[in-house]
């Protein structure tokens, strides 16, 4: 800038600048090549259409916005896909009347969660994933680790009185969860319904799954739900 005077506010600096630019040799050349002078200081960039596009995008995203009452945050769990398509509103009906949908296909509800993670953890930069020690967790609190080689619950974690079916640490954790649930259902004036959601990796062997189910039944949770991914 050739004019060092600072604007005192009485005249906009903008006007002064354009005059000095006009006096400048380079600006003169540009002026002659463009022909019209106003293009020098106001490039014809219309921001209005961009705003329109962004607003439309926002409206579309708000429309498709959805949340799950249960979120799978663990990167080592890959849920199986199912063709199960719950009827809209079946979850609310179930909460009110207590009757489960006839085809066994319900909406997601918030209850006690038992997680069985898988042998592979997804990570950026590793397309095949990293090895992971599978574990069982109740309400995202790890309870027992599975044997990584055999993918089974170690015998040391099992209750010997149950013929190898009840996982002792899981039972203790579920009993604590049940006590909490019973207190909160007293507050809501509802009966404890014994619902439990099982989030299991799709590789989980049936033996582990049935042990978890038996343990849930032992601890007073008799209404199992399997969380699966809905079809698109």
């Amino acid at each position: 800038m050739s004019d060092p005077t600072i604007s005192d506010g009485s005249e906009p600096a903008y006007a002064g600048w354009s005059q000095t630019v006009a006096a400048d040799g380079q600006a003169k050349k540009r002026k002659s090549s463009r022909g019209r002078r106003k293009h020098i200081h106001t490039p014809p960039l219309s921001i209005t259409s961009l705003t329109d596009a962004v607003t439309l995008l926002l409206v579309y995203l708000l429309k498709t916005f959805a949340t799950n009452p249960i979120e799978v945050k663990d990167s080592s769990i890959e849920l199986p896909r199912s063709v199960c398509r719950p009827e809209p509103g079946s979850g609310a009906r179930e909460r009110e009347t207590g009757s489960s949908p006839r085809d066994g296909c319900g909406e997601v509800q918030e209850t006690v969660i038992v997680m069985i993670t898988g042998p592979i953890r997804k990570a950026t930069g590793h397309p095949e994933g990293l090895p992971n020690t599978p574990r069982i967790a109740v309400n995202s609190e790890p309870v027992v680790e599975l044997d990584a080689a055999t993918y089974r619950v170690p015998d040391s974690a099992k209750d010997p009185a149950s013929n190898g079916w009840v996982i002792a640490p899981l039972r203790d954790a579920l009993r604590r969860a049940k006590e909490l649930k019973e207190v909160s259902s007293l507050r809501d004036d509802k009966k404890f319904d014994g619902k439990v959601v099982i989030l299991a990796d799709k590789q989980t062997p049936y033996r582990v799954l049935s042990e978890v189910l038996v343990t849930c039944g032992e601890s007073g949770f008799a209404d199992f739900r399997f969380a699966v991914i809905k079809p698109d």
């Binding site: 319900g106 509800q109 619902k195 049935s210 039944g217 949770f221 199992f224 739900r225 969380a227």
Partner: peptide
């Protein structure tokens, strides 16, 4: 999007509660 599959209690060890 998640969904739930309802499952009945297994044949052995069905505890109280539900």
């Amino acid at each position: 999007q998640l969904a739930m599959l309802n499952v009945q209690a297994p044949q052995i060890g069905g505890g109280g509660g539900g």
